[in-house]
């Protein structure tokens, strides 16, 4: 049985897709592209798909991950193309690698987020960021299913900086862009919790809702605060596997 890990996006207006909506759309895309899925046992069999750590509704993402199990092996690159063509534009399948390693979910240690704050002067954002980073802990509140919850939003933030706004940005007026690296912890700290933290420490109050995008997730290098490609180990294993076989075929007269 083959397992394939995919990276997909939630871009533009389709960032309003909820995780449930995505699941339905993805299962339909599997049928449209006639992917030979493995099914769960039971009265209503389900195709075997596992989703990891989905970004909240309304948040864009360049780096969502899932894994599928196939009943028959397929070429990952071809599969990526087919699935991508079967999903609406914006839900794009951008990478596919055959799984050669275990515990993929644990490799998703941290996320890189970009937060666009329209109407906020970069200098104000800089000041707020400095105040936030200087604090040891920053208590924030969030409404959860079990009521209001208070927790620290500072501890999980490994990096937080103000980036330059792109020159081709639509519209005028001030705009600050934050880039942050947040460790996946329990309770999960989300970009809006960090924004609540900026409000709490430095009174930063963006006039319009922030546009949030997850740029990456994967293993975290604590030293540098960088996040690396979580599919790399699978890719390396795949290359290693194919170069050994290729090497074997090309070595004439190799004793067997």
């Amino acid at each position: 049985m083959q397992r394939i890990r995919l990276r997909y996006t939630k871009r533009g207006r389709l960032r309003f897709t909820s995780h449930r909506d995505f699941q339905r759309a993805f299962e339909r895309a599997l049928r449209r592209s006639e992917v030979p899925m493995a099914y769960s046992a039971g009265f209503t069999p389900h195709p075997k798909v596992s989703y990891a750590n989905a970004a909240p509704t309304g948040t864009g993402s360049e780096a969502e991950y899932l894994e599928i199990q196939l009943a028959e092996a397929r070429d990952p690159a071809r599969l990526r193309e087919l699935l991508d063509a079967s999903l609406p534009a914006g839900l794009d399948v951008v990478d596919a690698v055959e799984a050669h390693t275990s515990s993929f979910a644990e490799r998703l240690e941290a996320s890189v987020w970009e937060v666009r704050l329209d109407g906020v002067e970069p200098a104000d954002a800089e000041r707020a960021v400095a105040a936030f980073l200087a604090a040891g802990t920053v208590e924030v509140e969030r409404r959860t299913k079990s009521g209001m919850r208070t927790f620290d939003a500072r501890g999980a933030v490994c990096r937080l900086e103000v980036a330059a706004a792109p020159a081709d940005r639509p519209g005028d007026g001030p705009c600050a862009i934050l880039r942050l690296v947040v460790r996946h912890a329990t309770p999960a700290v989300r970009p809006d919790d960090v924004l609540s933290g900026l409000r709490a420490t430095a009174d930063l109050a963006p006039p319009v809702p922030a546009a949030v995008t997850r740029l990456a997730q994967g293993p975290l290098d604590e030293e540098t605060g960088t996040v690396t490609d979580p599919l790399a180990p699978d890719r390396d294993a795949a290359t290693a596997a194919s170069s050994t076989t290729a090497g074997a075929a090309m070595a004439p007269g190799r004793p067997s």
Binding site: R13, F16, T57, P209
Partner: peptide, 26 residues
């Protein structure tokens, strides 16, 4: 009018119903 609408969507129930982009839409 999407830019104006987009700013309102985080405040409403099930915003996905207002964004279009369905498969097979034109």
């Amino acid at each position: 009018v999407f830019p104006q609408l987009e700013a309102l969507l985080p405040h409403v129930q099930k915003p996905i119903q207002y964004v279009g982009g369905e498969l097979n839409s034109t």
